[in-house]
Design a protein around this nucleic acid. Sequence first.
DNA 1: CAGGTGATGAGACATGGTGCCATCACCTAG
DNA 2: CTAGGTGATGGCACCATGTCTCATCACCTG
Lengths: 192, 192
Amino acid sequence: MSRWEPNARERLERAALALFAEHGYDATTVAEIADRAGLTKSTFFRHYADKREVLFGGQDMLVELFTQAIRSASPSATTAGCLAAALESVAVAFTPERHDVAEQRRVVIAANPELRERELLKRARLSSAMADALRARGTDETTARLAAEIGVLAFGTAYARWAASGNRQPFTEIADAVLRDLQARATALGAS
Amino acid sequence: MSRWEPNARERLERAALALFAEHGYDATTVAEIADRAGLTKSTFFRHYADKREVLFGGQDMLVELFTQAIRSASPSATTAGCLAAALESVAVAFTPERHDVAEQRRVVIAANPELRERELLKRARLSSAMADALRARGTDETTARLAAEIGVLAFGTAYARWAASGNRQPFTEIADAVLRDLQARATALGAS
DNA sequence: CAGGTGATGAGACATGGTGCCATCACCTAG
DNA sequence: CTAGGTGATGGCACCATGTCTCATCACCTG
């Protein structure tokens, strides 16, 4: 178990989540996280730009899934159809066996303003990437931004419901229902 | 010009904006800001929770204006009508004489990821407050959240256009056009 | 076995941010 | 006019985050 144990990132993420859940985010120092992972502060910051990032390792994959789904959608698909496809494509990241970790992570983030702020940044990046992907297939500027915002709102709502304690409903079903609801309300709102 | 010069907050905000514009946000220390304002680091942190906050002093007023406009809207007003009223009510904060400072502030924030992140937090608070105000007048949960998101998107777009160099169009006109555009797109998006 | 490569360790350093206590201006009671 | 109370400030110690540089070590390759 020397210096070259593999999976440094994974070890750091596990250690961080466990310590945050036990003592809280503020009361946990980077040195403690690194210690628990058998590493040092230096190595932590070589893997993560700051302390918050250790909880957001999977975000790049999420962005990739969203944009890939939109890029590979049929040219004749509607914008709303693209949103549905994008939401469906990320379901692979929210399998039942990841449910417990997701819930733990959700609680930790919810308890700390600094982490909620970082989550907003991640959501904004997601929205921005979706808008780019929509524009790339010819959607006009305003619709692209609006649809991306609705998509992120739907994702956030669906993720929260999926991760909430006790709810074992598949992510796809939740996301589908949320998106349909939002779409209907958008119609009513625009028509008023 | 001793210890008890008044308007400490205002002096700190001016000093901070000037230094950020000249040397950049990162290259400016809190001690330098305080020095320039004739104060000390201690006093800075007594007025602002952290270094970023010094650029977001007017946010509470913005929230107040938005929610007040929605609260005082006619019970028979549509949700979209509430958004329009809210956007119109904040125009008092964006008078021509504040244009230059706003533009300077916009540039500083745009140049720094940390500050952009904080701006997202402020927008989220705005959205949350608007959704609360809408719910308070009977709007259903989903519509309230969606409308608040659209309202903030409209505000952000309008503010950016208003503050952008050279544009001297009144805020009200810009906001109105942006909101109408978004409303039309929302209809089309929902109907697809 | 010599050298290159890449991840890690170690420690100095600046800054952000917190906490405590002393200081000073102003106000008010007596 | 003085004594004390109040509130904003200064000064300083302190810890954690985050940056930087250099040494170290494992592994691989010629």
